[in-house]
Amino acid sequence: MTATDSSLPTLQLTREGRLKHFLTLDGLDQALLTDILDTADSFIEVGERSIKKVPLLRGRTVVNLFFESSTRTRSTFELAAKRLSADVLNLDINTSATSKGETLSDTLLNLEAMASDMFVVRHSQSGAPHFIAETVTPGVAIINAGDGRHAHPTQAMLDMLTIRQHKGQFAGLKVAIVGDILHSRVARSQIRALNTLGVEEVRVIAPATLLPKDVESLGCKVEYDMRHGLRDLDVIIMLRLQRERMEGALLPSEREFYRLYGLNEEKLALADSRCIVMHPGPINRGVEIESAVADGPQSVILNQVTNGIAVRMAVMSMAMSGQVSERVQPGEGAGQ
Results as ranks from 00 to 15, higher is better:
residue 171 A to W: 03
residue 171 A to C: 06
residue 171 A to Y: 05
residue 173 L to K: 10
residue 174 K to V: 08
residue 175 V to E: 06
residue 176 A to I: 09
residue 176 A to W: 01
residue 177 I to G: 03
residue 178 V to N: 14
residue 179 G to N: 11
residue 179 G to T: 10
residue 179 G to I: 10
residue 180 D to L: 02
residue 180 D to A: 04
residue 181 I to V: 14
residue 181 I to S: 05
residue 182 L to Q: 04
residue 182 L to I: 03
residue 183 H to I: 01
residue 184 S to A: 13
residue 187 A to T: 13
residue 187 A to L: 12
residue 188 R to I: 01
residue 188 R to D: 02
residue 188 R to P: 06
residue 189 S to E: 06
residue 190 Q to T: 12
residue 191 I to C: 04
residue 192 R to C: 11
residue 192 R to G: 00
residue 194 L to P: 10
residue 194 L to N: 08
residue 195 N to A: 08
residue 195 N to R: 12
residue 197 L to G: 14
residue 198 G to M: 03
residue 198 G to C: 08
residue 199 V to M: 12
residue 200 E to K: 15
residue 200 E to S: 15
residue 200 E to R: 15
residue 200 E to A: 15
residue 205 I to E: 00
residue 205 I to N: 02
residue 206 A to R: 04
residue 206 A to L: 05
residue 207 P to R: 11
residue 208 A to R: 04
residue 208 A to P: 03
residue 208 A to T: 13
residue 209 T to P: 04
residue 211 L to I: 07
residue 211 L to T: 06
residue 212 P to V: 08
residue 213 K to V: 07
residue 214 D to S: 10
residue 214 D to M: 04
residue 215 V to Y: 01
residue 215 V to R: 00
residue 216 E to S: 15
residue 216 E to K: 13
residue 216 E to Q: 13
residue 216 E to F: 01
residue 217 S to F: 04
residue 219 G to W: 00
residue 219 G to A: 02
residue 219 G to P: 01
residue 221 K to H: 14
residue 221 K to T: 11
residue 221 K to V: 10
residue 222 V to T: 12
residue 223 E to W: 00
residue 223 E to C: 12
residue 225 D to F: 01
residue 226 M to H: 05
residue 226 M to A: 13
residue 228 H to E: 15
residue 230 L to G: 00
residue 231 R to G: 00
residue 231 R to I: 14
residue 231 R to F: 05
residue 233 L to Y: 03
residue 233 L to Q: 00
residue 233 L to T: 04
residue 233 L to D: 00
residue 238 M to W: 07
residue 238 M to Y: 01
residue 239 L to I: 12
residue 240 R to Y: 12
residue 240 R to N: 07
residue 241 L to R: 02
residue 242 Q to A: 13
residue 243 R to T: 13
residue 243 R to H: 15
residue 244 E to G: 06
residue 244 E to Y: 13
residue 245 R to I: 02
residue 245 R to T: 08
residue 247 E to V: 09
residue 247 E to P: 00
residue 247 E to C: 03
residue 249 A to L: 07
residue 249 A to N: 14
residue 250 L to H: 03
residue 250 L to W: 02
residue 251 L to K: 09
residue 252 P to G: 06
residue 252 P to M: 05
